[in-house]
Structure formats: C-alpha cells, structure tokens
Computed example of a mutant assay.
Amino acid sequence: MRGRDDQEPVGTVGARLRRVRPHLTLVIAAGPVAGVVATAVSDGWSPSLAAPLLLLAAGIAYFRTRRFRPRRWPVASAVLGAAGGACVGLASAWFIGVAAAAALGAGGWFVGEHARRRVLEPYTPELADSPVEVPWQARGARGLELLVAHDRITLSGGRGPFRLVRPMVALSGVGAVEQVMVARRTTLPVPGVGELRVTVTPGPAVRITVPPGEWIVPTDHGREIARLVARRKELAGVD
C-alpha cells in the first residue's frame, strides 16, 4: 500500500501540481541540456558528457523526493541551474561558465519561486487533504517558518541557530493548537532544544502544545493553522 507521500493529490491541489510540472521540468533539464550541447560542440561525444547527464539524474531524483515540498523548490532550482552553467564552463571557457552559472541560477530561482507560489498561494482548505508541506511565515521573525507536513510540524529558519537546529514534532505528539493574542513583544524559549528562542511580536499568534511545553509563533493565520493541523491529524488517525 502506498503512503501519502506517494499519492497524487486530486482536485484543486492536484491541478496546481500538474500546472507547475512543465516549469519544474524546465528547471531540471535546462542546465544539463546546455551542458550536453556545449560539451558535444566542444569535445564531441566524450566522457565529459557524464557530468551534465549525472546532473540531470540528480535533478530528477531530487525533485521526485521533494515534489510535495514547494518551499524547497526555489533554492534547489537555483543550485541546479548554477551547476548546469558550471557544466557549460567545463566545456568552454571559465568566464562563459561563470556567466552561464549566474544566468541559469537566477533563472532557476525565478522559475522555482513561480512554481512554489502557484502551488501554495492562495491557501485553501483543500491543501490540508494533500501531502503538500505548507509553510507559514512567522510575523516579525525574519526567516522563521512553521512547516506543517502530513505527518509532522517543524520550526525552520534560514538565520541564526535555526539554521542548525530544526525542532520537529510528529503529529502524534502535537496537542492543542489555538490562536492567542500577545500583548507585548517578548522572547520565549523553544522547549526541548536548548537555547533556541522565538521573538513574539504583539498581535495574533498560534500556540501549539508539544512535549515538553509549547511553541508560540507570531502569525495572523492561527485559525487556519489550527484547522490544518486538526485535519491532518484526523487523516493520520491521530487523536
């Protein structure tokens, strides 16, 4: 029997994913194809063709395993594009490779970001019934996100200690999830992960009961997050 990670979403979410497949195919293929063409023109059919072909295989494998994690697509697309540009440089001159890496990397990020937005925005309740990982940006905490997957929730960020530690709790360990109001700016510890702290700004926030305490994440979407987590716990058969 296939798990939710292997199931193709139906309805609105499935349609969104189908619409972005050509974009992701372009991201995966553009760099390696450019590398193959440059290598074939420069060296003919030589062993150096292995580099872009391996890059193509790596891109296919990566996006197959991350197809339900749109948040990762922009950076992955940029890296894949830059690597494809480097393959072009290996078959020509270094300055051509630098230019190709910059152009393909920037183009990859743009296409990946466009695909991410088309899948995740606007947020609709149908996303709760899919295996798509839904990120929620914390208000006033740049780079900090609450990720709600089909089987776990995670605090993730690209700055400070959150780059090294990603607190994660399985849905079976998640208790009450509710919207609360924060009266003043405060810095709260993240229980169970040492010195990690979250700065909570005044306004709405979501409070999530987790072992051994609770997470409080500043966000204007506490009710949507509560419903999303409740629905995914229901689908997972978690009380």
Rank of each mutant, 00 (worst) to 15 (best):
I60V: 15
L24Q: 02
H221Y: 07
P135V: 05
R19C: 12
Y62G: 15
P135Q: 00
P191K: 01
L188N: 01
E8R: 13
V182Y: 02
R19N: 06
Q7H: 10
L155H: 00
V111K: 07
G35M: 00
V180F: 05
A29V: 13
V132T: 02
R2L: 14
T219C: 03
A176I: 07
Q7K: 10
P167L: 11
L55E: 03
R2K: 06
V10T: 15
R2W: 12
V98L: 13
S46E: 13
S46F: 06
S92G: 02
S130E: 07
L164R: 14
V119D: 05
G107L: 02
R117M: 02
Q137F: 07
L127S: 05
V238D: 00
I216N: 03
V169L: 12
L155W: 00
V193P: 12
P161W: 10
V198K: 09
E8P: 11
L171K: 02
G157D: 05
R72L: 14
V174F: 06
E8N: 12
G213K: 04
R231F: 04
P189S: 14
L164G: 10
R139V: 15
G160Y: 10
I153S: 09
I153R: 08
P47T: 01
P122D: 04
C87R: 01
T209N: 08
T199Q: 15
T187M: 12
R152Q: 04
A86H: 11
F68M: 08
A141I: 08
G97P: 01
A29Y: 03
V10Y: 15
A128C: 03
